[in-house]
Design a protein around this nucleic acid. Structure first.
Length: 732
DNA sequence: CTGGTGACAGTTTTT
DNA sequence: CTGTCACCAG
């Protein structure tokens, strides 16, 4: 059968194991996407399974699209009845379909991170809480974490006072979401699970449908996703999970690679398939990767191998500082290109933090060479895009007060905070949504042209601008049913004055306008759908899609990207820069072994992106936060055996024994935990010579010292270094 | 309602 | 050293 013909034995085994649960542990470059697509094709073509009974979950929309494309190619037909998409997209579709069982209607809005933050701020305000003490970011992280663990606001159990407050914000936040007829990203997952818990009949319906469930990137699932899959699969579906523990790099977002182990526990008779043959990297690169990852304790050892041969030793380079590091990379690429080794587009430069891209960009600009920068500011996070989308969302769902708040004065139309809060108070008194209040206001004004007082005690100027705004919205909403998304977009841009507002003649304005034009191109894709469906689908996809400007393969220039964004990609030549203790591994992981393991996995991901050539670059000194500091080379470089690094063995041999030991100590000393032990922890009562008594809020190790944040009774919150501050502990 | 100033924090972010 | 954000004066 031709679907199986270009698969190796392990891949074929995975594809053909259609009875019972299967877990595939796939090394980097071992063809896991291939296995996934071929399995779907095999089910449909080889086993006569109706695509309607198959669900394939990917981690990005891009991956879903690619898989669709490959299936089309493989089968020569489009599988329209196949369920394929991200967890969020699939859940959102289910929730809309089953909205009658939920507290929202089927046209609920989906809130992204910045919408969520806005809502958290509002919740904090409603509860009269101080944003300084309760950082919206931190609160949101707590809420998100809870939701990922399927803990609703009603079952949230605080461990500390701070968490008790966070729990109250959580409750208020959920009320606000509901009032706005909205769900946030995490809700999509949690509520899908809750829906299935509360309505076994609904669950049964989906279980009957999805007889084959395939999950990609299984190591990056969170609890909610794991439970969801398990529920959906039930007793009868064949569950197929593909992943690689060593590439789990999203723990900070709730992902837990232990789900791989959980899977093995929950399904003891699951068939385990290991894909260990790499079709990507040379043996040397695989050996480097293996050496680095082998220091992790929590993993299943794998024996990665390739038929590509040993290849070249990797290069470890020390630059003087970050400017020279960037220059080295640019020069090296220019050199490789000049000697015909590779094309510029074959090269990628990877770094731990986005901030590092600046210096690299500078170097390319100065050299007059083009480069591609992947996703610093994401397209859909751009202000102008969010603004225009807010208009569309509001037109679609007039209860969406977050969107309303966003654009009520954008472009400026004289509705300041004062007018706005008066309007809010009035709407609150009448117990109607703000949009309804706006329309009522407009009617009253039209009814009383004479100018007598209106019920809402607002100054007449405010009344007029608000009425104008209400009229604009009314007009747009009325147009919704007749117009395509594209026409609606144009109407909004025109009537609201947004295009005039954005195109202010500056270069930046023109950039922003171009982004809006980009959005118009996206909208054009929805032209053949009927208006209402088009708007819903458009907003849905736009909310769940990360970046349209995901990088352009066609441009032949080096790619600059963070290590996280590199996952799933491959390049013939890879430069990993900034391999220094504190930067990579990042200092925040120093006192947390689990976080350190994740840094190591991140390093593993970076290394295994390389097909032929790998450069590990670090600096002698680096400027951080305006201060130049001598840097210590990353432990990850030290973990690479000398014989895999070009010139390293000779260099080591040339050094005398004593010097070698010296270098070992100075350069790679970081074998155990942090040098500084933490003396203070949250909750400790302390006394300071000048500031008096207080309570420790936070304590962390920074560099060679401990930084303690203390809330003093008299002096407020201070940040102190333990070695200078001479803090006295009071609670014994 | 703007624009300016000061305080402050400063990983990663497939959805 | 940066960028962001809250707050205040014009």
């Amino acid at each position: 059968m031709d679907i199986l013909k270009d698969l190796n034995p392990a891949q074929r085994e995975a594809v053909q194991a259609t009875e019972g649960p299967v877990l595939v542990l796939a090394g980097p470059g071992s063809g896991k996407t291939r296995v996934l697509t071929h399995r779907v094709a095999y089910l449909v073509r080889g086993c006569g399974v109706d695509p309607y009974n198959v669900m394939a979950v990917t981690f990005t929309n891009k991956a879903a699209q690619e898989m669709m494309g490959r299936l089309h190619h493989l089968l020569g037909q489009r599988l329209r009845r196949l369920t394929i998409g991200t967890f969020h997209a699939i859940c959102s579709r289910i929730l809309r379909r089953e909205a009658k069982h939920l507290d929202v209607t089927s046209d609920f809005a989906i809130y992204d991170q910045s919408d969520q933050l806005g809502l958290v701020r509002q919740a904090l305000q409603d509860l009269n809480l101080d944003e300084k003490m309760y950082r919206p970011q931190a609160i949101l992280a707590t809420i998100s974490k809870a939701k990922n663990e399927l803990i609703g606001s009603e079952s949230f159990e605080p461990q500390t006072y701070w968490q008790e407050v966070a729990g109250r914000v959580y409750t208020r936040y959920q009320e606000l979401l509901l009032a706005n007829n909205a769900q946030d990203f995490d809700d999509l997952l949690m509520n899908a699970v809750h829906l299935f818990t509360r309505h076994p009949d609904v669950l049964a319906k989906y279980q009957r449908r999805y007889l084959h469930i395939l999950v990609d990137e299984f190591q990056d699932t969170n609890t909610a996703q794991y439970v969801l899959v398990k529920r959906l699969a039930g007793e009868n579906s064949s569950l197929f999970a593909v992943g690689d523990e060593d590439q789990s790099i999203y723990a900070f977002r709730g992902a837990d690679f232990r789900n791989v182990h959980r899977f093995r526990n929950d399904y003891p008779d699951a068939r385990l398939v290991l894909l260990e043959q790499s079709y990507r990297s040379t043996q040397t690169i695989l050996d480097v990767a293996k050496a680095v990852i082998s220091y992790n304790i929590h993993r299943t050892p794998k024996d990665l191998r390739t038929e590509k041969g040993q290849g070249l030793p990797i290069v470890a380079h020390e630059a003087y500082n970050e400017q020279e590091e960037a220059q080295y990379v640019v020069d090296e690429i220019a050199h490789l290109v000049a000697e015909g080794t590779c094309r510029p587009g074959d090269c990628a430069i990877m770094y731990r933090t986005n901030a590092q891209s600046r210096v690299l960009e500078d170097a390319f600009v100065r050299a007059g060479l083009p480069y591609k920068l992947v996703g610093a500011t994401r397209f859909y996070a751009r202000r102008e895009i969010k603004d225009v989308l807010a208009y569309l969302r509001l037109v679609h769902n007039s209860h969406d007060s977050v969107s309303l708040a966003r654009i009520i004065n954008v472009p400026p139309r004289g509705i300041g905070p004062k007018t706005r809060s008066a309007l809010e108070r009035w709407a609150d008194d009448l117990k109607v949504p703000i949009y309804t209040a706006l329309q009522m206001l407009r009617e009253e004004i039209e009814g009383s042209r004479g100018g007598e007082e209106v019920t809402a005690c607002l100054p007449s100027y405010a009344c007029n601008v608000l009425a104008d705004f209400a009229e604009l919205l009314g007009e747009l909403i009325a147009a919704r049913e007749k117009l395509s998304v594209l026409e609606l977009l144009d109407l909004i841009l025109d009537k609201s004055g947004y295009s005039a507002y954005i195109r202010d003649g500056t270069e930046e304005g023109e950039d922003r306008w171009n982004n809006i034009l980009e959005l118009r191109t996206v909208a054009r894709e929805y032209l053949d759908l009927p208006p209402e469906a088009a708007l819903t689908t458009f907003l849905e996809e736009v909310a769940l899609v990360s970046d349209v400007d995901s990088f352009d393969e066609a441009v032949n220039a080096p790619t600059l990207l963070t290590l996280h964004m590199a996952k799933g990609l491959e390049f013939p030549v890879v430069f990993m820069v900034g391999l220094e203790e504190g930067l990579f591994p990042h200092s925040r992981s120093f006192n947390d072994p689990e976080a350190m393991e994740e840094e190591r996995r991140l390093c593993y991901v970076g290394i295994t992106r390389a097909k032929e050539r790998l450069y590990l670059v670090h600096t002698f000194r680096r400027t951080m936060y305006g201060e130049s500091q001598v840097s210590v080379p990353s432990r990850f470089i030290a973990d690479v055996p000398d014989h895999l690094i070009a010139g390293r063995e000779e260099a080591q041999a040339a050094l005398g024994e004593e010097e070698r030991r010296y270098r070992w100590q100075v350069q790679w000393p970081v074998t155990s935990g942090p040098a500084v032990t933490v003396q203070f922890e949250t909750g400790d009562r302390v006394r300071h010579r000048l500031f008096g008594e207080g309570i420790v809020i936070e304590s962390k190790v920074t560099g060679a010292d401990e930084e303690v944040t203390v809330a003093f009774e008299e002096e407020g919150i201070k940040r102190l270094l333990a070695s200078f501050a001479k803090l006295e502990k009071l609670n014994g």
